[in-house]
Amino acid sequence: MKVIIAGGGTGGHLFPGVALASSILARNPSAKIIFIGTERGLEAKVIPKLGYELRFISARGFVGKSITEKSKSLMKLLQSIGECRSIIKSFPPDIVYGVGGYASLPMVFTASLSKIPTVILEQNTVPGLANKILGKFVDAIAITYPETIDYFPKEKVYLTGTPIRKEILLGSRERAIELFGLEEGRMTVLIFGGSLGARKINKSITEGLSYLIPLKDRIQIIHQTGEADYSWVAREYQNFAFKATVLPFIYEMAEAFAVADLVICRAGASTVAEITALGKASILIPYPFAAYNHQEINARRLLSRGACEMIVDRELNGEVISQKIIKILSSPEIKREMEFASLAFGKANAAERIIEIGESLIRRKS
């Protein structure tokens, strides 16, 4: 079986595609998979390191650009469609999956016109521009939230959840304690703001340390800061004598999740999918500049089910976040109810469901 996975740009689009590819190979080891992306996207750094073939197209972003840049984007889109035709000719796929982002649009559109089975994944409540357009052409649409069905032709929509990396489900708490230099018997708070960190989160946490002193002997912290903030954040923990493992980047995220009693992070689709698949209590701080404000919408979905606490970025400060940490970690009942609600929200088998939909489309074509 030959598979094309198109899209990326950001981790929220790319990592569900990576999770899907991993599940395809686990199910069908002889499958051949290539990714389609751009030289500017995150996929240019990530995909080659994972051992998958990556082919570039000329697509550019459209949303939020000036009129001049939008005109250039449209020209690049036409160029990309020609490039996608060439890719399909050299690597005729049995199915094409689009994982979102502007790189997915020309490939999925071209495949649809070529009568190749197509599936798009929509990880957020409100679809991005590419998926709104592609919804009219593709054979199936895999969504994460029930509300998303209103944006697409209902007969094409399947409520599957967002694919997550299987290794996230296999993290070892015991290995985490050794790896991060933690102590048994303490509650662990995991804090991260994306691969580059998030200064607003870093500042609010360090400002909140004075409020967290009543918990100091009961908690320990794993904090991913990003390279730019690493030194001063580590120094603040030392100044307040908190037990904390501060890292520019966490490579062993499965272990970090496994040991976490509380997760504090942004509300990107992939992160939310991983947190809920694991049933973790969380404080979500949506990135305020996300397209269509989708992170806040994602977080409010969990909040409405009691699966998280949420702080909007403009209201984030040390006192506010420390109060929420104390509220959750001082009440086993609140924490337990949040974990149950989170787990009920999660869908650990999303990738398998999406693959089954794709296989059904391939059989139908045959």
Results as ranks from 00 to 15, higher is better:
C265W: 02
T148V: 04
F152R: 15
P29D: 00
R336C: 02
P286A: 06
V99S: 11
P29Q: 02
V96E: 08
R165D: 00
S195R: 13
A6N: 13
G37K: 08
R175N: 12
I120N: 10
G98F: 01
A176W: 02
S90T: 10
I88H: 06
T160N: 12
A258M: 00
F15I: 05
I88E: 05
T148F: 05
R165G: 01
T162W: 02
A267W: 03
R27C: 07
W232E: 11
N317H: 10
S270Q: 14
S22A: 00
A142H: 07
E39G: 11
A277M: 01
A228K: 15
R300Y: 10
S195C: 10
G279P: 11
S270E: 05
G171M: 01
R235P: 01
I177G: 03
N239D: 06
T162L: 07
G100M: 03
L343C: 04
P117W: 00
I149L: 15
R175H: 05
A291R: 07
R305S: 14
T144K: 15
M253N: 03
G61C: 09
R353G: 01
S366E: 13
F56W: 12
S80T: 08
L182W: 03
G8E: 05
I354A: 08
V263Y: 01
L159G: 07
P214D: 06
Y52H: 11
N239V: 00
T206V: 12
A341N: 15
E39I: 09
R60N: 11
E184Q: 10
K76A: 14
I168P: 03
A21G: 08
F345R: 04
K45R: 15
G101T: 03
I168T: 00
A31M: 09
K70G: 12
L303G: 10
L170A: 06
A111I: 00
S304A: 14
G128I: 08
N131T: 06
S304D: 14
L14T: 05
C308D: 08
F289Y: 15
I168Q: 02
G208E: 03
R186G: 09
T68E: 15
E39S: 13
L262Y: 05
G100Q: 06
A44M: 02
D139K: 12
A348D: 05
P286S: 09
E252G: 03
I81S: 12
F345S: 14
I95L: 13
L74P: 13
A140N: 10
E227T: 09
R175E: 15
I177W: 00
Y158R: 15
I321K: 09
H13E: 10
K327H: 11
Q123E: 11
N239F: 00
I168H: 02
R40E: 10
E352N: 11
R266I: 04
I357Y: 07
A291Q: 14
I201K: 01
L247R: 07
D229Q: 09
L284K: 08
K45E: 09
I222H: 01
Y158W: 08
A59L: 07
R363G: 01
A273Y: 05
D229A: 06
P16C: 01
T144D: 13
A344I: 01
S73F: 07
W232F: 03
N349A: 08
K154V: 06
N28P: 07
I328Q: 09
E252I: 00
